[in-house]
Write a protein that binds this DNA or RNA. Structure first.
Lengths: 240, 240
DNA sequence: CGGGATGTTGATGGCAGTCAAGCTCGGTGG
DNA sequence: CCACCGAGCTTGACTGCCATCAACATCCCG
């Protein structure tokens, strides 16, 4: 009876979920999905609202259903580094850790599927497909983090900003490599600066520089960018 | 017969291995360990020798038995960032990826236990304990990488160098918090600079600055550091 | 002892941070 | 409909930190 109820729940909640194909739960089905579905609860966050604070007890994991969130680390004197951006389908949280080490904040109104951490870990042990998928994703995240360490440690401001725009283009399209396209910047200048390890002013100056080079034009108060020539951007992102 | 042979192999190769307790294989035993043991081969690397090149086919994973290795990412114009250091017991490689994205180089003469990647992935599916342990480690690595993104993006040279020395102290001792202790720097100034996203000269200057502040003294051509007061170091690493 | 590699110290310049003023755009209310 | 307001973005002037280039010191090893 219970299992049948769980399956029903899984059917209604998960099988028609907006991120069924892309989230970590996409790799599992049947009773495993039912178990996971059973511990998941939806939660909305308003823009600017914090999901977890660094230093607090690590109580939850989640999947992003809609919206954009930032993962940040901060120094004692209040400087902030965005160490990751989360989009629909991305996994949130750090299983196996008693304490949260990063702060997670919604950048836009967001919708999450939340799992209590310890129960999620238990499901992880029972559903091999889920554990495998999470391992894959964590490996990818680690690789992304390391690529970004290269940027933060070695690249100049121009390379960082140009590279960021190239990444935006790649995210925007599904593989179509148009020479020019319009992308909207999903974050404020301040967040862009925190992401790139620069200041707002430096980011702004680099963008006007790109405008002067005829690589881009800015609209919607700088929140939408028409990339006129991706080749120029790519060249500036990787000089020599 | 084959299984018994494998068990014997596991006994002789793994059960008395120097990193039996600390490596990723420490979490498994019995037939799983036998399977893993069966695909593992020892390999020595001389200092400076490269294990894997970024861009090459991703053919292997490994455990570090002895020695120190660096994981590096590089820009097109040849700038290098050390994105991770590997010590005895650490796991090397990126399962589930067809291509190596990072270069792994031995900093000292090293001894590895190498697994062909695809066979390692197969074992991963059969030994839940191994997969779980690898997930835990990857989560920790991701967290380390993110902490370091904070350093590379936000901290000044003095904070980076002082923080590096504090980390060295924590690695050196097993929890004993002496106010002063001698640690040896396992890497050259050049590697230290690449690790911290600075130049050799800046690292050197910061060290002499710490010497002037009476926080440390240098010996053995700067390769051994007597930390006279960790409190000073900690304070410089986290100002305000 | 001598030579090469590694580390330190010095002089200089450029890039990005800081502080401060002005601008743009979207929203609100008269 | 338009004037106003405030948040976010841009631009400008200046400073300071760290990279660069270059010389020198030190250590290790033959």
């Amino acid at each position: 009876m219970w299992n049948i109820h769980a399956m029903m729940t899984a059917n209604s909640r998960c099988l028609d979920c907006a991120v069924r194909e892309t989230a970590v739960c996409g790799g599992i089905d049947g009773s495993d999905l039912a178990t996971l579905s059973d511990i998941g609860r939806r939660r909305q966050l308003a823009a600017g609202q914090v999901l977890t604070w660094a230093g607090d007890a690590n109580l939850l994991c989640a999947s992003v259903v809609t919206g954009i969130l930032k993962v940040t680390a901060s120094t004692a004197n209040g400087r902030e580094q965005i160490v990751g951006l989360l989009f629909a389908g991305d996994f949130v949280g750090q299983p196996f850790s008693e304490e949260s080490t990063m702060t997670v904040t919604a950048l836009t109104a967001s919708d999450l599927c939340i799992y209590p951490r310890e129960r999620f870990e238990r499901v992880l042990g029972e559903a091999p497909g889920l554990e495998r998928e999470l391992l894959r994703r964590t490996m990818r995240s680690l690789n992304d983090a390391r690529e970004r360490m290269l940027t933060l440690g070695q690249r100049g401001a121009q390379e960082r900003v140009a590279g960021f725009l190239v990444d935006l283009c790649e995210r925007a399209e599904g593989g179509i490599s148009e020479r020019s396209l319009t992308v909207d910047v999903p974050v404020s200048r301040g967040d862009m600066a925190d992401y790139l390890g620069l200041t707002i002013e430096t980011v702004s100056r680099q963008l006007t520089r790109l405008k002067a080079l005829d690589a881009i034009t800015l609209t919607r108060a700088g929140r939408s960018i028409l990339v006129k020539d991706r080749m120029i951007l790519a060249a500036l992102a990787n000089p020599d």
